[in-house]
Design a protein around this nucleic acid. Structure first.
Lengths: 348, 348
DNA sequence: CTGTGTAAAGCAAACGGTTCCATAAGGAGG
DNA sequence: CCTCCTTATGGAACCGTTTGCTTTACACAG
């Protein structure tokens, strides 16, 4: 049925080893033989059997992206997809295939990853970091499997990771508002156990401190990465006696909630309240007004994660410590939600 | 290093074949041996090498989802991700892994798919149908590889496919507007070469015909699955002397454009113009007003595609002709954009 | 003419399983 | 007590590649 290396060999009148060597451009193959064999391979439509290859080389040329619990949220979907696109694109350029695995919970995720790695189906794993303690990381680390974390962990020191500088990002976002003349700036945070929430909060604080602006606890509220959190935060802030004139929100979805609330109460953005948030999801420019947002380069995050992982697979010796953490640059996209109202029609 | 079947065999004092049989629950293995071997496998942390397994069984227990050209559009991202989730979930339940492949163009896609299939890296492929002529399908069909199409093709008759009944969906959407009392209903279509555009247009026509309502060519405009198309369509419609009171839009993104335009011109939805569209993306309920939409069950589409493909892989004889096309039910989600205005606060 | 070096190609083992065929042990039937 | 089954297990070939070690065939120096 399928044409194997032996069929080619027979037809070419050489041994299988010769064909194999032609395939891998072995130096000690005469040009003549090489050409002849190649022609015959082409002719017979030979494609190498990856399984057989993998069996002997103990390498699969594929990596696994472990999709966390199916978060039903809009943002997750957009985020994951961008990430996957980055990963797949890079991997494909490096000649690797990408396997998507997912588990309903940590236990399942561990089982899946373990099966894939121990069963030699993939060479390494890209993990999306969400938890603070992680059985999967423990497993990977203790078995010395190549992996890279998208995100940051404070518990694990010497592992490969790709992340944004969220402190700096929040610092930039806040400074932008400050530069627009705002002096009372609030912050809508995410779940406090997420490192990303903590980092962004820290950056916000740093910016205020740096500019000598007032910092009040009541100007910081915690929530989820969801619309509703924004909605609630908004109504809390707007009822404050000395309310903020601008808000930094930890995620664009939160901004949508804020926007909806302000809209209902007939407040104007950015005149009554300016807004900047994070992640720059495609919707950010579609809302009215469009929301200023920090683009964290999700695609790039995935692309780099794949690159780092594959390079680590190829030469595992490279973990020199100081290159373990790769930081993807962010950039602020200024839109109407944080512009001076009289500048509305001028920019963009 | 890794523990193989031979290591287990040696430790258990049996032959490798016996261990293999234990693994596959061969009937002619004594309970005693089975228990002993299983204990030892557990003990030594044995995991079967999938590559070796695949080599002899000529089967990989994995399928490929071929991601079309990276369409940068928002909807594509949401759609793909939902689809992937459906596919991965089902595949995982059936014990299959999912490999994501992508090519920048048709040629690359064909190469990738061909390499994966001929190289015996996957057992089958899920294709997302977009083109009308398809070298990939031709390749799969002529080589008799298992595959399933998400979408519909009019060129290929006897291939497995999973799709919605888009004619019926449009029929339902239009009838909904009719039942709300509208008599002049317009249609914003997608690219005419896409089957989905054609099907939905047909359903719209059918509904009008069925109700004996007027049908005008000027009430039908073509565009893309993009906001801008909606925006333009809107301004065209609103300038018509005898303009429609309701619109069926081929995609939610189009509705957003319509909404934006109406908003700018201070028109009210649904009072001045009612809207229903398709796909029910997560944003549909976030816009103001929320948009009525036909949910096409994307996750379900992916889930079923995987199911159908895997079942076809396992028993290829099953293609009986009349079960080749699987239709995923849609359902209309009525939201504010198509309700009577005085009912605004009553429902939902 | 023999010895040695080198380039090109072949042989066979190995990778980690599965499975057909053979074999040994025990029990039943004659 | 000897056959003949049955049942549980072992042996060995094979899946399609890769690769270390040989072998072959020259060419050239001594």
């Amino acid at each position: 049925m399928t044409v194997t290396i032996k069929d080619v060999a027979k037809k070419a009148g050489v041994s299988p080893s010769t064909v194999s060597r032609v395939l891998s451009n072995h130096p000690r193959i005469s040009l003549e033989t090489s050409r002849k064999v190649k022609a015959i391979m082409e002719d017979m439509g030979y494609t190498p059997n990856m399984m057989a290859k993998s069996l002997v080389s103990k390498t699969t040329n594929s990596i696994c992206f472990s999709l966390p619990k199916p978060a039903e949220e809009l943002f997750s979907n957009l985020f994951f997809m961008e990430l996957i696109r980055g990963i797949v694109t890079q991997a494909s350029r490096s000649g690797y295939d990408v396997l998507i695995s997912s588990g309903a919970n940590e236990k399942e995720e561990l089982e899946a990853v373990s099966r894939l790695l121990k069963g030699r189906r993939v060479d390494g794993v890209i993990l999306l970091y969400s938890r603070t303690d992680d059985a999967v990381i423990d497993f990977l680390e203790s078995n010395d499997y190549p992996f890279v974390l998208v995100g940051r962990s404070d518990r694990y020191e010497n592992i490969l990771s790709v992340d944004n500088d969220n402190v700096m990002a929040a610092y930039d976002a806040t400074n932008h508002l400050i530069s627009m003349g705002h002096e009372r700036i609030g912050f809508v945070s995410g779940p406090p156990n997420l490192i990303v929430s903590r980092d962004r909060l820290a950056g916000y604080r740093k910016a205020l401190l740096n500019s000598g602006l007032e910092m009040r606890d009541e100007w910081i509220v915690e929530g989820e990465f969801l619309q509703d959190s924004g909605y609630r935060a908004m109504s809390f802030f707007m009822n404050l006696p000395n309310r903020p004139t601008a808000l930094v929100a930890v995620d664009d979805m939160v901004s949508f909630g804020i926007l909806r609330g302000l809209n209902e109460l007939k407040y104007k953005v950015p005149d009554d309240l300016a807004i900047v948030s994070f992640n720059n999801i495609p919707l950010s420019e579609l809302s009215s007004p469009p929301i200023s947002s920090i683009d964290i380069g999700i695609y790039h995050l995935g692309y780099t994660a794949s690159q780092v992982l594959i390079q680590n697979i190829k030469s595992p010796n490279h973990d020199v410590g100081y290159t373990n953490r790769f930081v993807i640059p962010h950039r602020l996209i200024v839109r109407e939600s944080s512009m001076y109202s009289h500048a509305k029609n001028k920019t963009e």
